[in-house]
């Protein structure tokens, strides 16, 4: 049986195309999700969450009674 020299080349090209598509699509997909969802854009931003949680804490009354005493 004789080896076809072009076979390996085709295989390399095919692998490169698949990997390229994977990384390109993966990155685009993530960016799109994050852009579309305010959930993700806020909840992955430390700066944004610090600002928002501080605002909420300033408005919220205490949630726990100071009168609790002893071990629960």
């Amino acid at each position: 049986m004789t080896k076809k020299p072009g076979g390996v080349l085709y295989l390399i090209v095919a692998v490169l195309i698949v990997l390229g598509c994977h990384f390109f699509w993966g990155a685009t997909h993530t960016v799109q999700s994050q852009e579309e969802s305010t959930c993700i854009s806020c909840h992955t931003s430390v700066k944004e969450l610090v600002r928002i949680t501080r605002e909420i804490a300033a408005k919220s009354p205490p949630q726990k009674s100071a009168e609790s005493k002893g071990e629960g």
Binding site: P62, Q63, S65, A66, E67, S68, K69, G70, E71
Partner: peptide, 16 residues
């Protein structure tokens, strides 16, 4: 158990 003046629930255990 009970609620304080602000209506928040509390518990008190006397000793351990």
């Amino acid at each position: 158990v009970g609620k304080d003046k602000k209506g928040l629930p509390y518990f008190k255990t006397e000793k351990t």
